[in-house]
Computed example of a mutant assay.
Amino acid sequence: MIWLRSILFNLAFYVITASAALLAQPLLLAPRGWLLPPMRWWASTILWLLRHLCGIRVRVTGLEHLPPGGALLAAKHQSAFDTVIWLRLLPDTAYVLKRELLWIPFYGWLARKVGMIAVDRAAGATAMRSLLKAGRAAAAAGRQIVIFPEGTRVAPGARVAYQPGVAALAAATGLPVLPVATDSGLCWGRRTFLKRPGTITVAILPPLPQGLRREALLTALETAVEGETDRLLAGRLVDNSVDNALAALRSQ
């Protein structure tokens, strides 16, 4: 059953995404803000498909921590799901993403038009200057910047070093830094076809103290995100153990 649900979801995902990107091309000639409602519609549609085709629900906690206006969300990255959810939750999202994504026909053109922040990972200091310039512009416009400080998708339970770009962005923009934990990889794994039923939790944590130096900020960020992520994963293990025990009792 999971295989069938996953086939239907993946087929619908790619068809809807490609169709939406193609139909939105005329908006490249319109003001940037005109693209925001179609983006939110696309994200809402993908979340609807996850729920009704895959049995995956979404629980978001800590929305009260989001300030009005600009913010810098430093989010755990386990799954492609993490690149969808913020288009639904935030009014004007600016993802920090790798430059190669802008080369994708149709999608890349829209991402550039809407003001996503593209980074050339091989450009060194030039990439950092470009990141900070785009970050300042997004902050000045009151947008919410989403950055994945690990720099890549990381499987649940695994850890990689946090990259310093988030600290540089925080210093350059003056935006509050909100750590974000998730267990999305348990339902929508990285580079996996199957989508497993369950509830994905996205936990928005209180903002870090402002004015922290780079090393202190990275340490505080990693402690907050990884600690909450571990708690979410442990909770899922407990829930699964209870479910398995109840299923065993029912079968007796």
Rank of each mutant, 00 (worst) to 15 (best):
W86Q: 01
R190F: 03
R196E: 04
R250P: 00
G70K: 08
D82W: 09
V96Y: 09
G135F: 07
R213F: 06
S251L: 07
T61S: 13
M128R: 14
A216R: 12
R40N: 07
Q144T: 14
A141I: 01
W103T: 13
W3T: 15
G151A: 05
V114I: 13
T182Y: 12
L233Y: 10
V84R: 04
V119K: 00
A118V: 01
A137S: 11
F193H: 08
A80K: 12
S184V: 03
V238W: 15
A234S: 08
S184L: 04
T219R: 15
S6H: 08
L27W: 09
T83H: 07
A80G: 15
F13G: 00
G235P: 10
N244C: 13
R213H: 12
R99E: 09
V96W: 08
I117A: 08
G211R: 03
G189A: 13
W188K: 00
G189Y: 06
A170L: 04
R153W: 03
L194Y: 12
C54R: 04
T219P: 08
V96T: 09
T83R: 06
T182N: 05
L53D: 00
S241R: 14
E222S: 15
P179S: 07
G62N: 04
A30F: 11
S130M: 13
T152C: 04
L186W: 04
F106C: 10
L110M: 01
D230K: 01
Y162V: 11
E100Y: 02
L63V: 09
S79T: 02
G135I: 06
I147F: 06
A75I: 05
V238P: 13
R129Y: 02
A123G: 12
I16T: 15
P197K: 03
D239H: 14
Q163V: 02
L218V: 02
A20C: 12
L208N: 05
Q78F: 06
W34C: 11
E215V: 04
P67Y: 07
V15W: 00
Q25T: 15
A74N: 01
R40Q: 12
Q252M: 14
A161F: 09
W3K: 14
M128N: 13
P164K: 01
W34A: 10
W34Y: 04
K98D: 08
A167K: 08
L175K: 00
L50K: 12
P38F: 00
L87S: 10
F9E: 03
V114Q: 02
T83K: 06
N10K: 05
P105S: 06
A123D: 12
L89M: 05
T201Y: 10
P149S: 06
I104S: 01
A155L: 13
A248S: 11
M116S: 08
W41S: 13
P176D: 07
A171F: 05
L131S: 02
L50W: 14
R112G: 15
K113F: 03
R250S: 11
A138M: 14
F148Y: 15
V84G: 04
V202M: 11
G174N: 11
H52Q: 07
P31I: 06
